[in-house]
Simulated scan of single mutants.
Amino acid sequence: MYFPTAGIEVRPWLPPLVAFGISLFTSMGGVSGAFLLLPFQVSVLHFDSPAVSATNHIFNIVAIPSGVYRYVREGRMVWPLTWAVVIGTLPGVVAGAFIRIRYLPDPAMFKRFAALVLLYIAVRLFRDIWKKKDKKPVAVSMEGEDVVREATLGLRSISYLYRGTKYCVSTASIMTLSLIVGIIGGVYGIGGGAIIAPFFVSFFGLPVYTVAGAALMGTLLTSVAGVTIFEILAPVYPDMAVAPDWKLGILFGLGGFVGMYCGARLQRFVPARLIKTILALCILFTSGRYLGLF
């Protein structure tokens, strides 16, 4: 099958199969997998125009709803945190899309930027892996204290109750972080969930069971904004592939939709440390390749 926007010819079963494999694995860690899907498009499919970032957003739009549905159904979606992330991220996504088209259209420059983003994610994962093991977590259920309660969003703080503990974070801090992540995500085409989730856990001390849903939902909504911006800017740059390749993005998204749902169901049977270690090594290898280290 030929994809005119991407300028590549690929067997139609390959994109959904690759996206399924990536999402099946990464969704166990609470992220969509877009940060690994983009290197596959650039390095394997040789799709390296600005349109690849927009196409990656399409993947997020199609794939993420299955994961979000699971968190909403289990009562672990912290809506005030989600809206704060969205409000902070949206301006960043707009700026990031413009930066990608205006200043990083060259594949070599974009690969260097992507390498730095991937290197950051790998470092965060390794730091989390090397931390001392916490006490054995309480088994997750859909009842009682495993449900988020009393969630509020104020001008100064966001708070909610989970497992008998009240969590409170600065609204301004969350929005500032989201703005920075939005710029990076807008350039790279990942929505930012893979970057913002580790910050929520490490710096703000929020439980991972309540962070993943907000990060995924924020990624979904900001990806919609990202695609819209790329479509609007496309006519301004008629000599450059800017708009997403919808057919390719949807094929990736369909595989990701199934992969995320299956990954969420299988998560409890796979050690989290093993998942993070393999993810970190894969990301580190890709970053090194983009930097020309090997």
Rank of each mutant, 00 (worst) to 15 (best):
D106V: 11
G88Y: 08
V242Y: 04
Y237A: 03
I64E: 01
L281D: 06
A114Y: 09
E74C: 08
P105K: 10
F40H: 04
C168D: 09
A108L: 11
L266I: 13
V85G: 02
K136N: 11
T210C: 13
T228P: 00
P198H: 10
W246P: 01
F35T: 01
D239K: 06
P207N: 08
M28A: 07
G263L: 06
V52Y: 01
R268N: 00
P39G: 08
P244F: 09
K276T: 10
L284V: 14
I275C: 00
A84I: 07
Y237M: 03
I174A: 09
W246D: 02
G96L: 05
G144W: 13
P15M: 12
H57A: 12
L233F: 14
A272K: 15
A272Y: 09
V94I: 14
D239R: 05
P198A: 11
F204P: 01
G292A: 10
S53K: 00
G88C: 08
V224K: 04
I121E: 01
S178M: 12
L118G: 02
I129A: 06
I61C: 11
D134V: 14
S173R: 13
P207W: 01
V72R: 11
M175K: 07
I283H: 01
M1K: 10
L118I: 08
L161F: 13
A6K: 03
A280V: 09
T210Y: 03
M1W: 14
L233G: 00
D106A: 14
Y69K: 15
V85F: 12
G259S: 07
L179H: 05
S43D: 14
L293D: 07
V10A: 08
V72W: 14
T82C: 07
P91T: 13
Y2H: 13
L220Y: 08
I158T: 02
S32E: 10
E150W: 12
F47L: 02
Y188T: 04
G96V: 10
D146H: 12
A234H: 08
G33Q: 07
F252D: 02
G226S: 09
Y167S: 02
L281N: 06
G164I: 10
L14S: 04
G67D: 06
C262W: 00
G33R: 05
W83N: 01
D106C: 10
V169N: 01
C262N: 07
S170A: 13
R265A: 15
K111M: 05
F252K: 00
K131M: 10
L206I: 09
S66R: 04
S49P: 00
P50R: 05
R127S: 14
I64Y: 02
P12C: 09
S43E: 15
T286K: 06
G185N: 04
V117W: 01
G189T: 12
S141V: 13
F252C: 00
G7E: 05
H46T: 11
C168I: 10
M175R: 07
P105N: 09
L284R: 03
P271F: 12
T219I: 13
